[in-house]
Write a protein that binds this DNA or RNA. Structure first.
Length: 418
RNA sequence: GUGGGCGUAGCUCAGCUGGUGAGAGCACCGGGUUGUGGCCCCGGAGGUCGCGGGUUCAAAUCCCGUCGCUCACCCCA
């Protein structure tokens, strides 16, 4: 048997329907905030991500689906959206439009990692990007938007973690100070031993309780923020408070993509195992210029859709669908049922029938298993009388409806039942 | 890339101190009304016991290898 590729999952009904509901809810929130959709290619030039995300990051260094196409160009399945949104933004001349540019993007991302709970090689994100302003009010708008989506889809017990990563100016001083601290102490785990030289900030991410203990008393980035960054961060916190958004300051929250500056945030939820971040994002003020555009600031976030689905409360079960099943007996009735099927569908009802001349018993059984609301029975008797038997499967109530008015009658009854 | 756990019917699993024909529940098909679902009863179909090798008179059961799944590390959504 040919199996799906490792880390790639089939998404089937009824899950597809729940995914669709979540996407609809997200789209509705985006609409209210004035964000519009981009749909972009899954494949980009490798260089885009190497430059955009940072060549030293794990994503670029060891997690990308990169290969050469038939013309010898190096291409990569997108591992994240932001670099790509910026590319499309610049390529299509959108930087020249007025004001803040607000976009969202929903779709699959690819990273070649070892799969585990909440982590797949193809996964899906709901992305938000706002380009063209450095105002802290925009940071707050984006965070509010994120929280609104998560609430709209029914996520409980979310936790918002907040930090400021400062700008390149403050980071220079901080990194120097941090390195002094890290090299002043010994006993780091092998990973941190390596990291303290290469990318000192990452040491904060270490899950080892031993390293976390060693980190006590380490310099905090917040203490090194330049006046502008400090003001920005203070304003963000002030506004979040004013909008009654609870957050936890997490001085050790560092993001794994090099382009982040200033505001960084993450939403975690219970029940996800080790991969508990449902969404993450932050400001990226240097990225647009890095990718060859003007010096415009930006901010955005990504929701991990698999993880979100995982923690959402289960959908209410045991609900009859608004579905009509047509059962027939005999060749003449089959033809009439086919015609009725078309009428019901034209009326906007969900309707279906079986074509394999089964017994009435098994046709009703099928209707039941499909959780149809009603079964319409058409046989010789019904043809003669010009009226079908309609059986409501929830309570077994049965009624006769004229064949000519069947579609209309069923439509109004189903609507009445809600 | 590293480590732990697991791989028996479509699904969830039992059986595994080696030994009578490989099982259960759910799902599926048929029958119990010749035109009526859900519940119940009866019957049926369905398995290279992941794959390969080894030990043995004998292996789903022990050993080795391999592949796969899964959780965790790393990192991220």
């Amino acid at each position: 048997m040919i199996r799906a590729i490792r880390g790639m999952r089939d998404l089937l009904p009824p899950d597809t329907e729940r995914w669709h509901q979540v996407e609809l809810a997200a789209r509705e929130v985006f609409r209210r905030y004035g964000y519009r959709e981009m749909r972009l290619p899954l494949l980009e030039r490798t260089e885009l991500f190497a430059r955009g995300i940072g060549a030293e990051t794990d994503i670029v260094a060891k997690e990308m689906y990169t290969f050469t196409d038939r013309h010898g160009d190096s291409v990569t399945l997108r591992p994240e959206a932001t670099a790509q949104v910026v590319r499309a933004f610049l390529e299509n001349g959108l930087a020249r439009t007025a004001g803040v540019k607000r976009y969202f993007l929903i779709g699959p991302m690819f990273r070649y990692e070892r799969p585990q709970k909440g982590r797949y090689r193809q996964f899906h994100q709901i992305n938000c990007e706002a380009l063209g302003s450095d105002a802290p009010e925009l940071d707050v708008e984006v965070i509010l938007l994120l929280v609104d989506i998560l609430r709209e889809v029914g996520l409980k017990d979310l936790r918002l973690l907040l930090n400021s990563l400062g700008c390149p100016v403050c980071q220079v001083d901080f990194r120097a100070e941090l390195k002094l601290f890290l090299f002043d102490r010994e006993g780091w785990c092998p990973d941190c031993e390596r990291r303290r030289g290469v990318n000192a900030l990452r040491v904060f991410d270490c899950k080892s309780s031993h390293c976390q203990k060693l980190l006590e008393g380490a310099p905090a980035l917040i203490d090194f923020l330049c006046p502008d960054c400090a003001r920005h961060y203070a304003r963000v916190k002030e506004l979040l408070g004013r909008f009654r958004v609870d957050f936890t300051e997490q001085p050790r929250l560092v993001r794994g993509l090099d382009y982040y500056t200033r505001t960084a945030f993450e939403v975690t939820a219970l029940g996800l195992g080790a991969q508990d971040a449902v969404a993450g994002g932050g400001r990226y003020n240097g990225l647009i210029r890095e990718l060859g555009g003007p010096d415009l600031p930006g901010i955005g976030f990504a929701i991990g859709q698999e993880r979100l689905m995982e923690v959402l409360p289960a959908a209410a079960a045991d609900v009859r669908r608004e579905l009509v099943f047509l059962a027939y007996l005999g060749a003449a009735a089959k033809d009439r049922a086919l015609a009725l099927l078309g009428e019901l569908r034209a009326q906007g009802l969900a309707a279906l029938m079986d074509f394999d001349d089964r017994s009435l018993k098994s046709q009703l059984s099928l209707a039941d298993r499909l959780e149809a609301a009603a079964a319409v029975i058409v046989g010789e008797n019904e043809l003669q009388e010009g009226a079908a038997q309609v059986k409501w499967l929830a309570d077994s109530r049965q009624e006769r409806l004229p064949l000519g008015e069947l579609a209309g009658c069923l439509a109004s009854r189903l609507k009445a039942h809600g």
